[in-house]
């Protein structure tokens, strides 16, 4: 079995995987970072979104060995020194989650979205959420949370 090494949430990690092992399974099973979820088998739900080298990636769409040497951030790595990331806080404040299953993927997508697009309005957020499914919230409060986090982070940068 090939071995793979990468940095996950700032820590160097390595492990033995089958060639066919997906990144999401490496994170969940080898590293036991179970915040990243698997919601489909056709790369369409976004429950598995993590950041690889600073970009949002569906970790079910990438082999673990393809992440060799990469910097990976999962939802578990967002909280810094016990302080919630503004996007995490906004999801709570605006009730952007119910069952919580889509939430880690939504949050990782949102963080990436906010980083890429300085002025997020409702329409853009809805379009950008194209790759993430939520069955509980009807999206309304997810959109609200992302809009609020985007404003807050912009304020913090200014």
């Amino acid at each position: 079995m090939p071995s793979v090494a990468m940095t996950v949430n700032g820590k160097a990690v390595s492990g033995e995987v089958e060639t066919r092992t997906l990144l999401v399974h490496f994170l969940r099973e080898n590293l036991r970072l179970t915040g990243t979820h698997v919601g489909c088998d056709t790369s369409q739900c976004g429950a598995c979104v993590v950041h690889v080298n600073g970009k949002a990636v569906k970790s079910c769409t990438m082999l673990a060995v393809q992440a060799e040497g990469a910097q990976v951030t999962t939802v578990e790595g967002l909280t810094q020194d016990g302080k919630l990331h503004p996007v995490q806080a906004a999801f709570k404040e605006h009730h952007g989650l119910q069952c919580g299953f889509c939430t880690p993927g939504m949050i990782m997508t949102a963080v990436d979205m906010i980083r890429r697009i300085p002025d997020l309005d409702e329409k853009t957020i809805r379009a950008e959420l194209e790759g993430n499914l939520c069955r509980c919230t009807g999206y309304q409060n997810i959109v609200k949370a992302i809009e609020a986090a985007s404003k807050e982070m912009k304020g913090a940068r200014a």
């Binding site: 969940r28 099973e29 036991r32 970072l33 179970t34 915040g35 990243t36 979820h37 698997v38 999962t74 939802v75 578990e76 967002l78 909280t79 919630l84 995490q88 999801f91 709570k92 404040e93 009730h95 989650l97 919580g100 299953f101 939430t103 880690p104 949050i107």
Partner: peptide, 23 residues
């Protein structure tokens, strides 16, 4: 009143514990 949810913390930090998370 619209109290914010107690359960949210574990979900937004990736610490939810769903069946498939259990080994």
């Amino acid at each position: 009143t619209s109290v914010r949810r107690k359960e949210d913390h574990r979900f937004i930090t990736g610490q939810g514990r769903y069946t498939d998370d259990i080994n």
